[in-house]
Amino acid sequence: MRRPLAVASWLAVTAVLVTLACDPEDGPLLLFAEDFETICDGAPCGWTRTSGGPEQATWEETLHPGEHGLRLTGEVTVRGPAAPDSARRLRGTVVEVQLAHRCELGSTLSVSVVFEDASTGSLRDATLRVLSEPAWTAPAQTLTLPDPPLIGGRVVAVILTKGGAGVCEVGDLTVNTTELCLDGCC
């Protein structure tokens, strides 16, 4: 009778330690992350405008003087940088995109993620329309790349396409793998 109790106790302690030791939302699952706080020449490093005027894509304060993001007005497209070489690589075709943002009514926002297959060097991309609302929100949405599955795919670009007449503000963007981890941290 005591042995099952002891085993159960050890399992419970182990589960607690694993839970405390791992943060499944940050770190191991991240393929790409942008917080728009690192600035190069007045704009977030690596971000360029590919369509629209300069006043349509600006870097501004958001919910606190120490917190910033992109302000996209009207129809405009901006392109973000590649993930660093040290970033986690994708195995498979499914990723999860989470965009912290708000959009005025009548605006639309889409996110495209471009992957480079490490084995072939070919590029693969997919696009999703973000679920927007006037208040700040960060829905996690699934994005599926076309087959075949990637083996070591790296994010080489992220593209935000703003449509409609209103304003969208973007404060944070992450691309995560949904792959099950075997190291006990997922």
Partner: peptide, 13 residues
């Protein structure tokens, strides 16, 4: 609070 929720959206835990 709404600010707490917004910070959570920005990956503050």
């Amino acid at each position: 609070s709404s600010f707490h929720r917004a910070l959570s959206d920005l990956r503050y835990r």
